[in-house]
Nucleic acid binder design. Structure first.
Lengths: 188, 188
DNA sequence: GTGATTTCAAACACCATGTTGATTATCTTT
DNA sequence: AAAGATAATCAACATGGTGTTTGAAATCAC
């Protein structure tokens, strides 16, 4: 009763069809009818699982968020002392392994909420490192997190578009350098 | 023939109605019918000016982009030597003066393309400062721009949500500090 | 195999869409 | 102020997606 293969197939093919369609047009431009036709799933079946196409996309995004977290949890558990470079490396690795999916979710047709959620992961995983040392007030700290996290997301988005991008660890070191030392050491 | 008051009113009330609706729901969730009802404009009139609600939003965004650029052009023209803090201050000032509009366009219901376009402004206005000094390859430079620009957009978005945010110049100095020196000087 | 669950096809009323043509209101020009 | 031009309005229409409901067929778990 737990995992009916029919349900699993239906949801899987709907997910994959939506991701494919999202490479061509934004979620607002495509219809449930169009999606079901591509997936070869009856429209009534779709509505028995999802409210609309936005609901399906939201569930896909939530699953990715949960997946990244469990991926990081597993890693953190193994090496009790994780620094920022290690965490970032793992995130870049995960994104590389799921590049097609991430290209859509983080691409120009993606929504901002998902970026924000990824951002929160980056923040939460690194924040505890800084809270020990920081001497700035809480508000300032939040602004710093925002800057670092959104900047990192921007780099990830660009990296996803590059055919010949650097490997995850080099990217993590590069980002870490930018975060801690800024660009001063890189110019002049 | 240039500015028919009827057209001006129609477009103006449609713009304002759309912005109001976007504070409640994303563009994909609202209909042309709903928008015209709120604006008290006949639907056929809407279609004589815009293709759909996305077209209207895109035109609003383009106008803002152009407005920011002319705002900066005017400033740069006056003071021939502008540094990053000055440019950022002007951008923060502009956003503060148009906070209601920017809150919607940069908020969670906004689209990523607009953020990217704002990002390009930040980059283009500051890039020439760095190109003189930089000793990194072009690809690395692009990644740096991306990090700095998207990070700055993130701070702007957070600043727009803060009731008691710092004044534009302090924000500009704060961002400039983060960009050049990173967070190392702020912790420990 | 058997009962339970899911998918499917078809049909349905409902609503948004995009367009049309005729009418009314407003603007610009003189 | 009047005339001609332009734009907004209104009603109406065909079209297509929506969300739901039926009963039958297919597939599942046990």
């Amino acid at each position: 009763m737990a995992g009916d293969r029919r349900i699993q197939y239906t949801k899987m093919v709907l997910r994959e069809s939506l991701i494919e369609l999202l490479r061509e047009k934004p979620i607002a431009r495509l219809t449930v009818t169009e999606l079901c036709k591509k997936a070869d799933i009856n429209r009534a079946t779709f509505y028995s699982h999802y409210r609309d196409q936005f609901d399906l996309l939201a569930q896909i995004e939530s699953a990715v968020i949960a997946d990244i977290n469990s991926y990081l949890d597993h890693f953190i558990h193994e090496t009790s002392e994780a620094n920022m470079v290690q965490i970032l490396t793992k995130i870049f690795e995960y994104i590389q392994q799921n590049s097609k999916l991430c290209q859509v979710l983080l691409g120009n047709n993606g929504n901002i909420d998902f970026q924000t959620n990824i951002m929160k992961i980056v923040s939460q995983r690194v924040v505890f490192e800084w809270q020990k040392k920081q001497k700035v007030d809480e508000t300032t700290a939040e602004y710093i997190y925002t800057y670092v996290a959104t900047g990192s997301i921007g780099i990830i988005r660009k990296w996803l578009g590059d055919d010949k991008g650097k490997p995850p660890q080099q990217m993590a070191e590069f980002v870490s350098h930018l975060v801690y030392k800024g660009i001063e050491a890189l110019i002049e």
